[in-house]
Amino acid sequence: MKKYAYNEITLMQYIFLIHGAQVGIGVLQLPRILAEKAGTDGWIPIIFGWMASVAASLIMIQIMKKYPEGTLFDLCTKYFGKWAGKAIALLSALYFAYSGFIIFQRAILFIQVWILPGVDGYVLMILFAIPTYTIARNGFRIIGRYAELVFFITLWMPFFYWVALRENHHWIHLLPLFKDMKKVLLATQSTSYSFYGFELTFLLYPFLQKKQKASIGIIIANSLTMLVFLFVTIACFVFFSPDQITLFNEPTVSILKVVEFRFLERMEIIFLAFYLMVLSRTWMPYMYGATFCTSWLFGKQDHSKHLLLLLLLMVMFMYFVVPTFNQNDLLQGLSAKIAFPFIYIIPLFLWIYLSIHERIRGRVTK
């Protein structure tokens, strides 16, 4: 009997869970960051970042194939012992909780700046914590259905970029091409941070109904993310001049200021209000992932109490500590640097070790 059969997810849910976890706050700032680091070639690192994320994702899939009915913690327990599994579960819980909180906090800061400047951060977090708890407490299947729904009901959003570009765009802003490939390669690391989210496959894999399609699913998810990043980055690059784009903290939103209709003004506010649903697809899987790890650590089946406690702790933190964008930027940078070896480097060595271990064991058995 499958250990996680009660909460199985379809291939579509698997794709949109990973894609939703990747497309979050990074989209709003990515064009500016790439323009600062790689200039007019800033869109090229997105392709390199996609290649790196796909390669790392496929390695993770190969690791999980070694123990298809369990999570990474079950696999580590099998190969390295009980305490290794518990240590990985604890570190994963801290990582997912930390990442989810940073994304949640950033979303609150955006709301305070663009939509509700007079409302305290902890009040906004309480308002968003209620639907987060309602959806996330039911597991990956319900979060996956929510991610599917949000994807399809927000397909209209790129239309407003087309309207903005129709008013003003200059393709010459992309020239010259391949001006400084050294800067492009250095900017690839920043782009690879934006693809974070595929590490959720370590948790999602045992829930996937058709595990033989896990590889194609994660390639599709990463490719969707790459298309979104390319679209918004190129749109901002041809709209703003190479010097002008660096003056806007969120050029992805600022570009929409020129979009006006006779019946509606300040389109960027409407856009950002809908984009909050997109952001929620990012923090929900991380928060549930954190509580899934802690529940596994303590041998509990019910994740809802752990999720409630996590959300309460976040609200309390927001009440006593008033965050700023600079503080959140520092937290994001720290998270990205800490997570990089655990997402890209350690899985590679783990896959090599497991492959060698199986070959040696096979020879001994013969």
Results as ranks from 00 to 15, higher is better:
residue 1 M to P: 06
residue 2 K to I: 12
residue 2 K to C: 07
residue 3 K to G: 11
residue 3 K to P: 10
residue 7 N to H: 07
residue 12 M to W: 11
residue 13 Q to Y: 01
residue 15 I to L: 08
residue 15 I to F: 01
residue 16 F to P: 01
residue 16 F to G: 00
residue 24 G to F: 03
residue 27 V to Q: 04
residue 28 L to M: 13
residue 33 I to Q: 06
residue 34 L to K: 01
residue 41 D to C: 02
residue 43 W to I: 12
residue 44 I to Y: 02
residue 46 I to C: 02
residue 47 I to Y: 00
residue 50 W to L: 05
residue 57 S to M: 09
residue 57 S to Q: 08
residue 57 S to R: 06
residue 65 K to Q: 10
residue 65 K to Y: 02
residue 67 Y to G: 00
residue 67 Y to W: 04
residue 69 E to Q: 09
residue 72 L to P: 00
residue 73 F to C: 00
residue 73 F to V: 00
residue 78 K to F: 02
residue 81 G to V: 03
residue 82 K to I: 09
residue 85 G to M: 00
residue 87 A to S: 07
residue 88 I to P: 08
residue 89 A to G: 03
residue 94 L to W: 10
residue 97 A to D: 04
residue 100 G to K: 08
residue 102 I to M: 04
residue 106 R to E: 14
residue 107 A to W: 03
residue 112 Q to V: 14
residue 114 W to T: 06
residue 119 V to G: 05
residue 119 V to N: 10
residue 121 G to M: 06
residue 121 G to I: 04
residue 122 Y to T: 10
residue 124 L to P: 00
residue 126 I to A: 15
residue 130 I to R: 11
residue 130 I to N: 10
residue 131 P to V: 05
residue 131 P to Y: 01
residue 136 A to R: 05
residue 137 R to Q: 11
residue 138 N to H: 13
residue 138 N to L: 05
residue 156 W to K: 04
residue 156 W to T: 10
residue 159 F to L: 15
residue 164 A to Y: 00
residue 167 E to T: 09
residue 172 I to C: 02
residue 176 P to C: 08
residue 178 F to Q: 07
residue 180 D to N: 14
residue 180 D to Q: 08
residue 183 K to C: 02
residue 191 T to K: 06
residue 194 S to G: 09
residue 195 F to V: 06
residue 196 Y to Q: 06
residue 197 G to Y: 05
residue 201 T to V: 15
residue 204 L to T: 11
residue 205 Y to M: 14
residue 207 F to C: 14
residue 213 K to G: 10
residue 217 G to N: 12
residue 218 I to E: 03
residue 220 I to T: 05
residue 222 N to R: 06
residue 223 S to L: 14
residue 228 V to C: 05
residue 232 V to T: 01
residue 238 V to N: 02
residue 240 F to K: 00
residue 247 L to P: 04
residue 247 L to A: 11
residue 248 F to M: 10
residue 249 N to T: 14
residue 250 E to W: 00
residue 253 V to P: 00
residue 261 F to H: 12
residue 261 F to P: 13
residue 271 F to R: 01
residue 274 F to D: 08
residue 277 M to W: 10
residue 279 L to G: 01
residue 281 R to F: 07
residue 281 R to E: 15
residue 281 R to S: 15
residue 286 Y to F: 15
residue 289 G to A: 07
residue 292 F to G: 06
residue 296 W to G: 03
residue 298 F to V: 12
residue 302 D to S: 08
residue 306 H to K: 14
residue 307 L to F: 00
residue 307 L to T: 01
residue 311 L to W: 02
residue 311 L to R: 03
residue 312 L to G: 11
residue 314 M to W: 07
residue 321 V to T: 11
residue 321 V to E: 07
residue 322 V to W: 06
residue 322 V to D: 13
residue 323 P to A: 09
residue 326 N to E: 15
residue 327 Q to D: 15
residue 327 Q to K: 12
residue 329 D to F: 03
residue 329 D to K: 13
residue 330 L to A: 15
residue 330 L to M: 14
residue 331 L to Q: 12
residue 331 L to F: 11
residue 332 Q to H: 11
residue 334 L to Q: 12
residue 336 A to S: 15
residue 337 K to V: 14
residue 338 I to D: 09
residue 338 I to T: 14
residue 340 F to A: 13
residue 342 F to V: 13
residue 344 Y to L: 13
residue 346 I to E: 08
residue 348 L to C: 04
residue 348 L to F: 03
residue 351 W to A: 12
residue 355 S to T: 13
residue 358 E to S: 01
residue 365 T to F: 02
